[in-house]
Simulated assay, not measured.
Amino acid sequence: MRSAIVAVLGIFALNGVVFGSWAPRVPALAAQIGAEEGALGLSLLGASIGMIASALLSGSLCARYGAKVMVLISAIAGCVVLPVLGLATSPLQLGLVLVVLGVTVGALDVAMNIAAVTAIRQSGRAIMPVFHAFFSIGGLIGALGAAGAAALALNPLRHLSIVAVIGTAMAIWFARRIPVEDLKPQAAHTGPKKSLVQRPVLWLLGFIALCSSVAEGASVDWSAFFGVHERGIGEASAALIYAGFSICMAIARLLGERIETRWGSQRMLIGGSTIGALGLFIAVLVPAPAFTYIGFALAGMGLAYGFPVALELAGAVGRRADGGGGERELGFVTTIAYSGFLLGPPMIGGIASVTSLPVALGVAAVIAWAMAPLTLLANRARRREQQTRQQAVETATT
């Protein structure tokens, strides 16, 4: 079981490396295609569009072919597509390549989370936040590699080709050890079968993940800008705001198993959303620059659990009597969550342009806190669904 957990951790890290490798090279890619901010922004939307398009379908494919197969295919496909970014010569070409890359990353994201749910079930350990911590660590490794490549004046094609070769080798090595569930042929839910869109618990879990992604995206995209333009912090020092946010998020996720085991997923989500909202409020309401660092560090700690725990619970509510299932449910929740990464940045930017950036980040704080009541509603919907299923079982056996 230990090798299976290590394999899933490795795949999470690989996904982070892929993302962390190309995102910091955006300035070089912009110069390569001669794009200004507006055209570049439209090109970058391609990644989010591809991720949303693939998430729901990926859940069904994992249910049919298994997460192990989908992890291998999507990871290798992502590594193959990655260097193609270095061949783009126009904003349209860059956007189309990012759509394809987004499809592979979205498919891998769903497949690796399904593999993580399998590892959790087989090991009996609440380690979903730990898996997501390794995604953050992978992103940091990818970003450091990108910084090194830029310092050595490697163009994106050469740099991303090196990442692709290493990533492909990692994908093949780790995918072979991904855990596989031993499903019974007749596995199915007992009782009346509902479509995914008819299950309130899935919508609520999706909105929890959505709120988490919007608040996290606002912190990632605007923290340094906020430090420079609202608190008078220098650009180099402002970059440390995001660094502190990311490090605190990674540490909180690494400690997630211990916290979830002691407090449970519901208290974990409610406490995390409260701390995340408090951190953002501190950053925007206290004018001292030191509290900007403190506020975003708290936000990183609090927002660490929303997305991974929502996905863990989505897998749990889709579990069948044979111990399998949850693939389609996890894909459904992920699709809703991804819309937050697509809509969040322009929404925060739009609010900031009409009012101010502190007000916009205050809205992000409210969205972060909204995970608390959504968690209570999701727990109630989950219990109601379990009662309905149990009644159906009792009716069928009498």
Score class of each variant (00 low, 15 high):
residue 55 A to S: 15
residue 224 A to P: 01
residue 395 T to I: 05
residue 341 F to R: 02
residue 398 T to G: 07
residue 95 G to H: 03
residue 4 A to D: 08
residue 213 S to D: 15
residue 59 G to Y: 03
residue 288 A to L: 13
residue 384 R to I: 12
residue 21 S to A: 15
residue 234 G to K: 00
residue 244 G to E: 11
residue 305 Y to N: 15
residue 191 G to N: 09
residue 186 Q to T: 12
residue 267 R to Q: 12
residue 369 W to L: 15
residue 392 A to M: 02
residue 76 I to Q: 02
residue 220 V to P: 00
residue 187 A to E: 12
residue 16 G to P: 02
residue 84 V to L: 14
residue 210 L to V: 14
residue 113 N to A: 08
residue 79 C to Q: 09
residue 91 P to C: 05
residue 37 E to R: 14
residue 251 I to Q: 13
residue 141 I to T: 12
residue 113 N to G: 08
residue 54 S to L: 10
residue 115 A to I: 01
residue 341 F to G: 13
residue 261 T to Q: 11
residue 383 R to P: 06
residue 243 A to N: 04
residue 8 V to C: 08
residue 207 F to T: 15
residue 103 V to K: 08
residue 196 L to Q: 14
residue 142 G to F: 08
residue 106 G to Y: 05
residue 126 A to Y: 00
residue 330 L to M: 15
residue 163 V to E: 10
residue 50 G to T: 07
residue 36 E to I: 01
residue 351 I to Q: 01
residue 172 I to R: 00
residue 75 A to H: 04
residue 359 V to M: 06
residue 134 F to T: 01
residue 84 V to T: 12
residue 66 G to A: 05
residue 78 G to W: 03
residue 176 R to L: 10
residue 272 G to P: 06
residue 295 G to N: 13
residue 327 E to F: 00
residue 272 G to D: 08
residue 219 S to L: 03
residue 292 T to K: 01
residue 296 F to H: 10
residue 62 C to P: 06
residue 190 T to N: 13
residue 357 L to F: 06
residue 374 L to E: 07
residue 133 A to M: 07
residue 22 W to V: 02
residue 296 F to T: 09
residue 211 C to H: 06
residue 132 H to M: 05
residue 368 A to H: 10
residue 386 Q to K: 12
residue 272 G to C: 03
residue 68 K to M: 07
residue 1 M to S: 13
residue 207 F to D: 06
residue 59 G to N: 07
residue 301 M to F: 09
residue 280 L to N: 07
residue 44 L to F: 09
residue 374 L to Q: 10
residue 268 M to N: 07
residue 125 R to F: 03
residue 118 T to P: 04
residue 74 S to L: 04
residue 37 E to W: 04
residue 71 V to Q: 11
residue 248 C to S: 15
residue 181 E to W: 09
residue 169 A to E: 00
residue 294 I to L: 14
residue 42 L to W: 11
residue 106 G to V: 06
residue 29 L to N: 11
residue 123 S to C: 06
residue 127 I to A: 08
residue 299 A to K: 07
residue 297 A to E: 09
residue 243 A to P: 02
residue 306 G to A: 14
residue 192 P to S: 12
residue 287 P to G: 09
residue 79 C to I: 02
residue 70 M to S: 03
residue 389 R to K: 06
residue 107 A to I: 02
